[in-house]
Amino acid sequence: MSDRQLADWRNHALNLESEVNKVVVGQQTPIRLITTSIFARGHVLLEGDVGVGKTTLLRAFTRGIGGGYQRIEGTIDLMPNDLVYHTYLGEDGKPHVSAGPLLMSGENLSVFFFNEINRARPQVHSLLLRVMAERSLSAFNSEHYFPHMIVFADRNQVEKEETFEIPSAARDRFMMEIPIVVPKDDGIMEALVFDTKFHNVDALVNTVKADVLQFDQLNAFSSVIQDHVEASDTLKKYALNLWKATKAPLDYGVKVSGVDMNRLVLSGASPRGMSMMLRAARVNAWLNERTAVLPEDIHAVFHSTIAHRLVFSPVYEMRRTEIAREMLVGIVNAVAAP
């Protein structure tokens, strides 16, 4: 693929960002990270309070990239088969089986949104994680493939009752965990409340230009990006040092206030996590018109790709978000490149 085509795709990607930014205001960083994950072909865990616009955000992206969008709500009585099919009595009085959210769009499924994933049982998590890893599902005596699917899952970090914490192995399947917070700008907050265009989500999403990207070409183009954007030896060394620092932050002089650093980290970033980080960094470099990854590209995705993979001592789990942020900022500040 020529540089011209890479540039064209970049323009499309930036155009998509621009379209989404019009309907979801004050979320430039999450939008950039979601764009990155789309081109890096990684699943995303969204973290945020209720009603901050996560669904609108995903619907807007889905409209921009095309393909099918499916959503399911995590509840304590949700069973794995609820993702695959549901049964009902038809008008003819006979039982009928229809495709569930996973199968409904077939191979054209591009975005699958699992809302409040931590309210679902571990059995449901298991099924979803398999689908995420293999992008396939066995059902009705046949194999179903979802080659273009990206899973976006949301978990409510505030409420803990009747929830099932996603184990670290499951979290590791997600490329990123992206925090979605309410914008702090007074003007944006006022617009979100008083501007009537934000009241009707369907109409709002319909303002996004449809099919800016071709969802069924993203896999192929993602490989092109990964092949095209290089990583120098210095950058590789830097990434390795970052990885080591996530395992033994004290060796790099990283400290977190009020935390015993000798006890904090049970497990640092996984090899899969680091490879996903570098995939995302490459996409970030491409989005910024670079042909090679810079440390700044890693910084742009470091927290969102690594924080949710860290395994802390249980005593520190309650403060995970705050501790992970401080620790990763300390690592970026401590590790030099070159």
Partner: peptide, 11 residues
């Protein structure tokens, strides 16, 4: 300059 020397020779 650092970018060109250490990370992206084409820059």
């Amino acid at each position: 300059l650092s970018r060109q020397v250490y990370f992206e020779p084409n820059a």
